[in-house]
C-alpha cells in the first residue's frame, strides 16, 4: 500500500504547482511528482493570429518574466521577416533582459526564499513571508524591495511599461532610450550593488547557520528511479 502526501498549494514559487510524494510500505519515498497545474493553451490559441501580435500576446504567458517571452517572440518575428535588427535595438533588448534577470532574482531571494533563510525553516508559517521579513528587519526588506524596483524601473524606462512591455517588436524596438533615462539608471547602480553584496553576505551567514539542519531537513531515502 502506497501512501501519498499531497502538497497543495505550493506557495512562494513563481507559478501554480502541487507536489505528490509517494511513500511505500517500508516508509521510504518510492516516487515523487511535481505537478504544474496551470494550462492556458497558447500552443493553440496563437494559430491564425498575425505574427506582429505575438510579442504582446506571448508576454502574457508569464507576468513574472514577461520580457523573456516578449524577446523570444520578437526574435521569432525577426526571423520571419528575415531581418537583422539595428545594433542599438539589440543592445536595448539586452539591457531590458538583464533588468528582468535582476528583478526576478531579487524577487526570488528577498520575496520568496529569504523568509526561509532569515526567519527560519521552521518559523511560524503565517509569518514566513516577505511581510514577516518587513516586520522583523524592515531595512533589509526595503533594500530587497528597492532592488526589485530597480529592475522593474529599467524595464519601465526603456520598454515603456513595467509588466508586459510590448515595445520589442519584430524588426527591433519601438523607441530608443533617452539620456535622462540612461542617467537615472546609472544613478541606481551604487545602491543596487551595495544591496546585492549585503544580500550575499546575509545568505552566506544563513547558510552556515542552517548547515547542520540541511543534512536532515527534507532528506528522504532515495527514490529507486533517481539512483
Amino acid at each position: 500500500m502506497t501512501e501519498r502526501i499531497l502538497i497543495h498549494p505550493v506557495t512562494r514559487v513563481e507559478g501554480h504547482a502541487k507536489i505528490s510524494i509517494y511513500i511505500d510500505d517500508a516508509g521510504a519515498v518510492s516516487s515523487a511528482q511535481f505537478h504544474v497545474t496551470e494550462f492556458r493553451g497558447f500552443e493553440k490559441l496563437c494559430e491564425g493570429r498575425p505574427f506582429y501580435e505575438m510579442p504582446g500576446l506571448m508576454s502574457r504567458v508569464c507576468g513574472i518574466c514577461p520580457v523573456s517571452h516578449v524577446l523570444a517572440s520578437s526574435k521569432a518575428g525577426d526571423m520571419l521577416l528575415g531581418v537583422e535588427i539595428p545594433r542599438a535595438a539589440a543592445k536595448q533588448r539586452r539591457l531590458v533582459n538583464y533588468a528582468q534577470l535582476l528583478q526576478s532574482h531579487a524577487l526570488s531571494f528577498f520575496h520568496l526564499s529569504a523568509p526561509d533563510f532569515l526567519l527560519g525553516l521552521d518559523s511560524a508559517p503565517e509569518k514566513r513571508s516577505i511581510f514577516g521579513l518587513i516586520e522583523q528587519d524592515p531595512e533589509f526588506a526595503r533594500r530587497g524591495i528597492r532592488l526589485r524596483q530597480f529592475g522593474q524601473r529599467i524595464i519601465e524606462l526603456v520598454g515603456g511599461k513595467r509588466i508586459h512591455p510590448a515595445w520589442s517588436v519584430p524588426g527591433g524596438v519601438l523607441h530608443a532610450v533617452g539620456t535622462a533615462e540612461r542617467d537615472e539608471i546609472r544613478g541606481w547602480i551604487p545602491e543596487a550593488r551595495q544591496s546585492i553584496e549585503l544580500a550575499l553576505q546575509r545568505l552566506k551567514q544563513a547558510s552556515t547557520r542552517w548547515l547542520p539542519k540541511s543534512s536532515i531537513w527534507a532528506t528522504f531515502p532515495p527514490c529507486s528511479w533517481a539512483q
Binding site: 498549494p9 506557495t11 512562494r12 508559517p125 503565517e126 514566513r128 513571508s129 516577505i130 511581510f131
Partner: peptide, 9 residues
C-alpha cells in the same frame, strides 16, 4: 493572509 507569497494552506 493567504496569498501566493505567504505559506497559508
Amino acid at each position: 493572509c493567504a496569498c501566493p507569497l505567504t505559506d497559508y494552506k
